[in-house]
Simulated assay, not measured.
Amino acid sequence: MTAVGQAAWDGLNERQRIYLGVLFRVDQELGGEQRRLAARGRFASAPACVWRRVDFNNRYGPVVSVLETQGVYDGVPDPPWLRCASVG
């Protein structure tokens, strides 16, 4: 990790780190699924911004279930960094 990246990571609180870690894993799983489909000849023509969309509000989706097991999901639809950005 670069010094700039490390400084950004160090500036996050534990809750923000958990959210980013979960989102990274979900994103990587979505990319893996697209590669598996393409390997079977079922390549999606949709752009990545469509199939990489991560849903925070799906109560039964992968993001919410993992955040709940981590003890950081509070049912608020906005991710914590949006709340931080609005405060300043």
Rank of each mutant, 00 (worst) to 15 (best):
Y73D: 09
A3G: 01
Q6C: 05
F24G: 05
R35F: 05
D55I: 07
L82P: 01
N57E: 14
V64I: 13
R40E: 15
V87E: 14
R36E: 06
E14M: 11
N57L: 12
R52T: 11
D74L: 08
N13E: 12
Y73K: 07
G21F: 02
Y19P: 00
C84R: 14
A48T: 08
D10V: 14
Q70Y: 09
D10I: 10
V72T: 10
D27N: 15
A48H: 07
Y73A: 12
V66H: 08
L20C: 03
V54M: 09
G21I: 03
G88S: 14
L67K: 03
W9N: 06
G88W: 07
G5C: 12
L30C: 07
L23A: 03
R59E: 15
L67G: 02
S86A: 13
I18R: 01
L67C: 02
F56Y: 11
I18V: 01
V63M: 00
A85F: 13
T69Y: 02
N13W: 08
A7Y: 05
T69C: 04
R52W: 05
R35Y: 03
R15K: 15
R36T: 01
M1K: 08
D74M: 03
E14C: 04
A3E: 10
F24A: 10
A39W: 10
Q28T: 05
E33W: 05
P79R: 00
